[in-house]
Design a protein around this nucleic acid. Structure first.
Lengths: 233, 233
DNA sequence: AGTGGTTGAGTGGCTGAGCCACTGGACCAC
DNA sequence: GTGGTCCAGTGGCTCAGCCACTCAACCACT
C-alpha cells in the first residue's frame, strides 16, 4: 500500500500562487508584491513563502532578482513541456492538443523501435505486455500499460524518447486515471497494445507506425468519450 | 543589457547536490542523510538546504516524506524532458540523442505548419525571418533564430509544439551558444532558415518536411564539428 | 504465543526575528 | 549636465526552536 502524505502548507500555498498566476491575477511580466507583504497576505511566514517561490521559480513561472523583486515569467512563450500538468489542471482544453502530439510522437517512437530494437528490447516488450494481461486491479493495469510504452521508448535506443514519453504521460495521466474502463480491464488493454508490440518485434517499420497510430487514435477517442460522459453525468 | 546576477548560495548548493546525485554519490532509491547532518556537512543552515531540496524535489530528483527522510528518485526511468538541461551538463553524450529527436520533431512541426498555418502565422514567419537578417551582434542573431523556430511551432496551431520546442532548445542551447560561427552570422543564419519558411509559406507539406530535415541535419553537423574543434583546441 | 496499544528517538515541516547584500532612484557637489 | 553618494526597499540567508509525523521497540493484556 502506498502511503499518501497529506499536503503541506507549502504545497497548498504553491498551488494557490500557481492558480493566481495562471488565472492572470498576477499578470505575466508584472512584479509580485514584496515577499513580506505577500507572506502576510497569505498568512504564512516569509520563509514558507520563499519555499513556495523556490518551486515556482524552478518550474519557470517566476523569476526573482535580489534587490528588485519577483516577476511573473512569460511561461506561455518561454515555458517547457513540463508545464503541461499544471496547465491542463487549470484549463482542460489542452488535452486535445496534447493528444495530437502524443499521437505523432508515439508513431515516431514505434517506427524507430521497429527499426532499432535489440533482442533484449524485444524480450522486455514481451514481458511488459504479458504483465498487462496478468495485472490485477484497475490501477495495476494502468501501471503495466505505462510500462509497455516506456519499454517501447527504450527500444528506440534513444533515452530522450523515454523522457518525452514521461513528460506527455505526466500531462494527461491524471485525466486518464479519472476514467474507469477500458484502461482498467486487463484483457481489453492487452488486445489494444498487442498489435503495436507485434509489429515492433517483427521489425516492420510501416506496420509499427500504423499500429501505434491506430492505438493512439483509439485511446484518444476513449478518453474524449469518457470525459464527455463525465461532464454530462 | 541583461543584468547577470551572480549565483546565490542556494544555487551553488543545488548544483552540488545535483551533481552528487547524477554522479551516483547518492544512489537512486537511497535515503539521503538527515537534513541536519547534511546541512552541517555542506556548511549551510538547514533552512538553506531545504530551499535547495525544494528545487530538486520540483525537478523530480528528490522525494521527501515527513518523518521518514528524503529519497533519490529514479529520474532516468520516471523523469521528464525538463531534466535534459541538467543531464546534458553532467554528461554531454546526451547531445546526439537530443538532436536526433529535435530533427524528427522539427520535421513534424514543419509539416504541420505547412498544413495549417494561417495568413497571420505566415506574416509572422516573414517578420521573424527578416529579423534574423537584420540582427546585430552574435547574440542577437541567435535570439532571432530561436524566434523563427518558435514561430514555426506556433504556426502548427498546437501550443504543445511550442512548449516542446522550448524544452529541446533549453536542453542544447547552452551548448550551441558556446560555439561561434555559423550561428552568429546573420546572412548565413538567414540562408539556412529561408527554405524552411518558404516551404511552409507555400503550404507544401513534403517540401517543408524535407527543408526542415535538411536544416536540422546541417545544424547538427555544424554543432558536432564545433564541439570537436573545441575539444581538440 | 499472539494481539493491540504506547512510547520515544529520529526525521522533516514551519515559524519569527534578525541581519546581510543588492538595486535603483533621489539628491547633492562639482 | 555629470558624476558620486546615500538610503529606502527588496530579496538572500541564518539561527534557534518548536511542531508533526513515522517507525520500530516495547509493554500489557488476552
Amino acid at each position: 500500500m502506498e502511503a499518501l502524505p497529506r499536503d503541506t502548507i507549502v504545497d497548498v500555498l504553491e498551488e494557490r500562487l500557481r492558480e493566481d498566476i495562471l488565472a492572470g491575477r498576477h499578470p505575466v511580466g508584472s512584479l509580485l508584491p514584496p515577499e513580506r507583504r505577500l507572506a502576510d497576505g497569505y498568512g504564512v511566514t516569509r520563509t514558507t513563502l520563499k519555499h513556495a517561490f523556490g518551486r515556482l521559480v524552478q518550474a519557470g513561472l517566476l523569476e526573482t532578482r535580489h534587490g528588485v523583486g519577483t516577476r511573473v515569467r512569460d511561461f506561455a512563450r518561454l515555458g517547457g513541456a513540463d508545464l503541461l500538468p499544471m496547465l491542463i489542471r487549470h484549463s482542460p482544453d489542452w488535452i486535445g492538443e496534447i493528444f495530437e502530439v502524443r499521437r505523432s510522437i508515439g508513431a515516431l517512437i514505434a517506427e524507430r523501435a521497429a527499426e532499432r530494437a535489440t533482442p533484449a528490447h524485444r524480450a522486455e516488450l514481451a514481458v511488459r505486455l504479458a504483465e498487462v494481461r496478468a495485472a490485477e486491479g484497475g490501477e495495476g493495469v494502468q501501471l503495466a500499460d505505462i510500462e509497455v510504452h516506456r519499454a517501447l521508448a527504450r527500444a528506440t535506443g534513444n533515452r530522450v524518447y523515454v523522457l518525452l514519453t514521461n513528460t506527455l504521460f505526466n500531462a494527461y495521466l491524471p485525466v486518464r486515471a479519472a476514467l474507469v474502463s477500458p484502461f482498467t480491464d486487463p484483457e481489453s488493454a492487452y488486445r489494444r497494445l498487442e498489435p503495436v508490440v507485434a509489429a515492433v518485434t517483427a521489425a516492420d517499420r510501416a506496420a509499427a507506425r500504423a499500429a501505434a497510430e491506430e492505438y493512439l487514435t483509439e485511446t484518444e477517442r476513449l478518453m474524449m468519450d469518457g470525459l464527455r460522459k463525465k461532464e454530462e453525468g
